[in-house]
């Protein structure tokens, strides 16, 4: 699904978070959302998903304004994995993942065997099958995050938003998860928006990158176009070396500032 944003502004009280954002995300693209802490990444994905109320500007999904999409309908095609998740009650892993099927079920209808199969399939993808019967509040942060990832996939979304979703995962699960998402995305035409900090991961998995700074979009376009030494040093104020690898991908190396 196409997502188009125009002249988006957003403030918390007098604190302006987003200051005139325009963007366009094409169907089935894997888009990285980069930028330093506090540049407005989470707010932007919150506005797209409807977690935050859009006041100024416009965001449309396949031509429909997000203002006119109910929470229930939104959940049928858009899933989001938040940066933080708190679970105070001892739901089991499977119970949490099954909640991803809520939008497709009426209040009192039972989960079918098909639903259970869908949920377990995505749990196996995020390597969380072994947590199916365990209370999630006893899992480690990264393990719980993988359960939430499975739930997002169980919604079988057309748009998947990852808000620093892999920040708690070890490299094996990070790489495995992102490559699985890429594969699912290509096969099923899922648009992925991933807010992230790891520039090398972004270069490995993204088709396009939106680079933000202080509530504005600084650069957007293909990975090689955006991830330049100049852009990175300008946004992150950190010296780097950018190298092109054999497969044409970019790798970013940090340098200790003098």
């Amino acid at each position: 699904m196409d997502i188009v944003g125009k002249k988006i502004e957003f403030s918390y009280g007098s604190n302006k978070i987003l200051d005139g954002i325009d963007f366009e995300i094409g169907h089935g693209k894997f888009v990285g959302l980069l930028g330093p802490n506090g540049c407005g990444k989470t707010t932007l994905v919150g506005l797209i998903s409807g977690t935050h109320h859009l006041r100024h500007g416009e965001i449309t999904i396949d031509g429909t304004s997000v203002r006119n999409i109910s929470a229930r309908n939104m959940a049928k095609f858009l899933a989001i994995v938040p940066q933080f998740n708190v679970i105070s009650f001892p739901f089991t892993g499977l119970e949490i993942v099954m909640m991803g099927r809520y939008p497709f079920k009426e209040r009192f209808s039972k989960f079918s065997d098909k639903d259970i199969e869908i949920c377990l399939k995505y749990m196996s993808i995020t390597d969380t099958l072994q947590f199916a019967k365990r209370p999630v509040n006893m899992l480690s942060g990264g393990e719980r995050q993988r359960v939430i990832l499975a739930r997002a996939l169980a919604q079988q979304p057309k748009i998947l938003i990852l808000d620093e979703a892999t920040s708690n995962l070890d490299i094996r699960h990070t790489v495995s998860f992102l490559s699985k998402v890429r594969e699912l995305g290509i096969d099923n035409g899922i648009t992925v928006i991933s807010a992230m900090h790891d520039l090398n991961l972004a270069s490995m998995f993204c088709d396009e990158i939106l680079m933000m700074e202080k509530g504005k979009i600084l650069a957007s376009g293909s990975v090689n176009h955006v991830l330049t030494k100049e852009n990175i040093e300008l946004v992150y104020k950190t010296p780097v070396k950018v190298k092109k690898q054999d497969d044409g991908k970019i790798s970013v190396h940090l340098e200790i500032p003098n």
């Binding site: 998903s49 929470a71 309908n73 939104m74 959940a75 858009l78 899933a79 991803g100 939430i148």
Partner: peptide, 8 residues
């Protein structure tokens, strides 16, 4: 999370 699961 509730909002993302379709709850108003």
């Amino acid at each position: 999370q509730a909002r993302n699961l379709g709850i108003n």
